[in-house]
Structures are given as structure tokens and as C-alpha cells.
Design a protein around this nucleic acid. Structure first.
Lengths: 300, 300
DNA sequence: CATGCCCAGAACGTAGGGTTATGCCAGGTG
DNA sequence: CACCTGGCATAACCCTACGTTCTGGGCATG
């Protein structure tokens, strides 16, 4: 069984036609056609029945599909891993963080880092936690920043700092005098709010706490990223519960913010592979992120 | 990433040398050598360091190893599956059973079957339960017979019949008059016995019951297959606890047998894939096996 | 020092996989 | 009906990737 055939089979199955498969594999249509025939008579049975000029997967093909897709996926992962193992350490800092943290922490931290190491090259990207773990193990990135405890078996995950869940509101929502005090969750009763539909630990925690408020807040708009919640709040669509980094993000007057009472803990984690210890640049970067985060959480 | 390279990498890693790998892949040594170089410069890093003319896997190679082996295995399984899907149903009866059952049931059942269907072709094989499940899903065989509840998610497993655990002893061990009565497990105290080290449900059950006997039986010889236990008992090495099929196996005078008291249940299961229902030959065969088994268990 | 083992290079042959050009068939449409 | 379009297969051709054999060099071992 040639890998080519496996790829081809997969391509035909996903695109639904030989022509489509050929485009996907970047070969000519006759090449794909011939290869498929070749595969079929090596196998000894038809993978597709040609009915009225079109292809239709046979019974056998469907039986093979799952295994094939599995192999394709594994090979693709291997591919990603090997390409990322090629250039070892020429880029001393490759960081991925969740969209939530991207704007709040990365830009400033990067600028500060380049004051200490002006020549260093930096690669930044954003990914959700699951994809982040994958990228880390496949060596596409070296450091991951997330608010979620992934419980990953192999990757090291360490706490950088902790902060409270915050309530954000449109400008001039609360009197200046109250801003320093936590807002009791009961005060959200019957309020217009932006819902958070993130399916991670933090999102679940927020939802379960909100669910207890009586009478329930009015949630007309739900969003999947805290950033969007922030923007909507700034435009006056309602209040929102967000992590402290999103709350501090952007220009100071765009939203008002107060800690929530009861205090709900948000943890900022850094993740990396256990095998190679962090280089000085990476250590410095994490140090900066931690300082930055703590300053964001304590001041104001 | 060519599949060839993956296979080659695997072959080199397992054999430890390019020459060995070449033999394994059935190509010449220079071909393997060149292919490995090719792979390495496609990857961009060395997989093996040539030290004093020998190969030694690099750090990176070790990181890839697990994924590679996984893919190799998956592809091999696919291979097995496809080769068995080629010839559909020209062989209406392919049966696999555990070694325990092989001699007791298969020969007679097969002979009886061929009286009803003289032209049918039959393929028999023996495998342990785990391998049996694999063979069934990979369509290398159609029916599996085992004494173990595999709990397999996809395969159908049905009960054919049940019987008691038996004690077997050398000829003339017990007076004829006692043979019909069960032997209390306490009677095994201080006896010479053949140990069973099978690591399946039945084996565990037997061992745990034996462990309670005081004073403990003397176990000088332990075996992994019930057949061997049977032979050893026949030669006078001691008593043994076995499934009722092994107990009945072979010529009637080779061993004496009595049910154990307390009654321990042994279940004979038939397994098959759920997708295609059994054909008449297969149904008839299972019927014969069931009748045969029941007759073996009840008579005498 | 001879021997055996293993790896790598050179020279060479072939087939598999790629290409373009073309034809056929089915279905949709003016 | 005539015509176009989209999809698959065939034919003829090309080339490189992979195989071969032969050879030589490095390194252990008796």
C-alpha cells in the first residue's frame, strides 16, 4: 500500500471527484485517474463505482475510510513535527497565547523584551488551548500562555500569576467613588449582559455563577471571545464578566471595571515542552510577562 | 514525507544497521543507504550519526520514533484489512478459536459440517482472545470461539453454552464410584498440582480460588495452556483445574475428571462482526459447535 | 596481518508517476 | 435538437526516483 494511494483515496473521498482530488494533490487529473485505477487493481477490489461518469464510494471504501483518515492525520502531524525540527533554535522565541491574552500582554512584553535583546527574532501567534498543546508538542512553538489548566500529561504547565474575575461596564456606568470596591454578583440581577459561550474551564465557571443570579440577567448577545465582549460593552450593549486581562485591555476610558464579589480566581499559565529547558531569552520573556501581568492586576 | 522513508527509518531502528534494514525491506544495501541520506536531507537534519562506521540514532530520531512506529503499525493493519477484503466470501467458513478449544471442538465440528456441506472450504486457526478480536475486525477470519468475555465494543459476542470448571487427575486416581460426584475444592489441599498461569478471566478465577485452599497445593510446574496441563496430568505429574472442554479432550482413559465444587462457570462464546449476518454454513457450524459442546458437557 | 562487517560512492537500467492532448459520456440549457 | 459543460479515461511521451551491481574505505577481531 503506497502512501500515495492513501492520500489519493482520502482526497477523492473529501472532494467527491477525481478532478477535485487532483487539484488538492496538485497533480493533473489523468495522473489521479491512473493512480486510482492502479490502487484499485493492486487492492483487488473497486474503491469507487463509476456510475454515470461520476464516482461513488463502494461498501469496502467506506470500511476503510476511518483507518485511512487516521493515517493521513498521523502522517500530517509527523510532517508538521519534522518540518519544525529542522531549524533548531535559530528563533529563540516562539510564543503562542490564547486570543484573550494576545492584545493585553504580548505586544508590551515583546517591546520590553527587545530592549534587553535587540537582535532577537520573535514569532507570535494565537491559538486556543487544545491547538496550543498540539503546536507545542509538534515544536511549532516553544511557549504557550493560557488561562486554562489543560492537565496535559507531558507538557510542563506553570503558574505565572493569579487575578480576579472582573465586571466591565460602559463608561460612566458606575460613580467614580465605587470603582475601587468589588461589585456583588447580586447587582447583576436583571441587567443587560453580554454572554460568554467559551467552552473552557473559565467560561463554565462564569456561566455557572451567573446562572444563580435572581432575577436572571438579560443576555441578548453571546460571544465566544472575551475581546468581543469587551468591544460590545464599550459600545454600551451591557455589562460582562471577563478575565482581568481583557478587562484592562485597550484604552483606559473605553470601559469601566470592578472586581467581582465573590472573588473568582483566574490563573495565567505558561506551558512549554519538558525536554529542553528554557533559554535566557525565553526566561526573560516569561519574567516580563509575569511582571506585566502582576502590574496590570494590582495597579488601578 | 514518503512512506518509504518511514518504513526505512523503522527498519533501521529495529535492525540497528542499514544492511539489516535493507534485508528487511528486501532491497540492496546501497539502495537503503541512499534512501536514508535522501530522507535526511529532505528532512533537513540527521536521523543517525555515523560514528566509527556504525549508525547511532540522533536525539531527533528518538523524538520521532513513537509516531513513526504508530504509523507503521496502522499501515500494516490497513494492509491486512485490504488484503482480506479482496476475496469476498469465496471461503464461506473461516474460524479462529483459542488453543484451549482447538482440539476439543474444531475437528469434530468440522467433520460434521462437511457432511451437510461437502463442498465447503474451511479455514481454521488458533489465536488468543486479543489477537482474535483483531483478526475479526481486520476480516482475516469470520467467526471466533473463546472462553473469555472480551467486552469488545463493536464485535458481537454471544453465549453458545456454559459448563463447570473441572478437576482432572491421572488415571485410576479416584475410585470409579466417586467420579460422578463433584470434588470439594478442599480436597486439593496439600496435593501436587499443575499451575495455570494464563492471564485471562478464567485463569484469574482459578488462581484466586486455589489461593484459598489450606494447606496450599504443591505447584511444581506451571503452564500457560490448558492442553499442556492435560498432558502433564495424564503423565501423573499431579491434578489440575481446567475448563470442561480441555477436561473432555483426548482419549477417555488418559485422565479422570470430576466437576469442582463449588461450581465455577465457564462460558463458551462465539464472536463475529456485526455488519454482515452469518451465512447458512456459518450458522450451521455454530449450531454444531453448540450441540457438540453441550453433549460433551452433559454426557459422562 | 588477514578477515569480516558495514557504510558510501559510481555507473547504469527501468518503471512508475508525472505531463499534455484528446475522446467519450451524461446532464443542463437555449 | 444542438450545444456547451463537467468529469473520467486513454494515448503518447518524458523524466526522475529508485533499484541494481561493483567497488573501495574504515573499523573491529582473531
Amino acid at each position: 500500500m503506497r502512501l500515495r494511494y492513501i492520500e489519493l483515496f482520502h482526497a477523492v473521498l473529501t472532494t467527491g471527484s477525481i478532478t477535485g482530488a487532483a487539484k488538492l494533490l496538485d497533480i493533473s487529473q489523468p495522473a489521479a485517474s491512473k493512480a486510482l485505477q492502479h490502487a484499485e487493481d493492486k487492492l483487488g477490489f473497486a474503491l469507487f463505482s463509476r456510475v454515470r461518469g461520476r464516482l461513488q464510494p463502494t461498501q469496502q471504501a467506506l470500511l476503510l475510510r476511518d483507518r485511512i483518515e487516521k493515517i493521513i492525520q498521523d502522517v500530517n502531524e509527523l510532517q508538521r513535527l519534522t518540518t519544525n525540527m529542522g531549524q533548531p533554535g535559530n528563533c529563540p522565541l516562539r510564543v503562542t497565547c490564547t486570543p484573550t491574552l494576545a492584545l493585553a500582554l504580548l505586544p508590551t512584553a515583546t517591546v520590553l523584551l527587545r530592549k534587553s535583546f535587540p537582535d532577537v527574532t520573535v514569532e507570535l501567534s494565537t491559538q486556543h488551548s487544545a491547538a496550543m498543546c498540539e503546536s507545542l508538542t509538534l515544536r511549532e512553538t516553544d511557549i504557550g500562555l493560557t488561562l486554562q489548566d489543560t492537565g496535559h500529561q507531558i507538557l510542563r504547565q506553570r503558574v505565572l500569576c493569579r487575578g480576579p474575575v472582573m465586571v466591565i461596564a460602559p463608561p460612566a456606568w458606575w460613580p467614580e467613588s465605587e470603582l475601587a470596591q468589588p461589585l456583588p454578583i447580586g447587582a447583576l440581577a436583571n441587567q443587560a449582559m453580554i454572554g460568554i459561550t467559551v467552552r473552557d474551564a473559565l467560561g463554565n465557571m462564569l456561566q455557572s455563577h451567573l446562572a444563580k443570579v435572581e432575577p436572571a440577567p438579560h443576555i441578548a448577545v453571546s460571544v465566544q471571545t472575551y475581546q468581543l465582549a469587551h468591544s460590545l460593552v464599550a459600545k454600551g450593549e451591557g455589562l460582562a464578566l471577563v478575565d482581568p486581562f481583557t478587562a484592562r485591555c485597550g484604552d483606559a476610558k473605553s470601559v469601566q471595571r470592578r472586581p467581582l464579589k465573590p472573588h473568582l480566581d483566574v490563573v495565567l499559565y505558561a506551558m512549554h515542552r519538558p525536554d529542553n529547558p528554557l533559554n535566557p531569552v525565553q526566561k526573560r520573556f516569561l519574567d516580563l510577562v509575569r511582571q506585566l501581568a502582576q502590574r496590570m492586576l494590582t495597579q488601578r
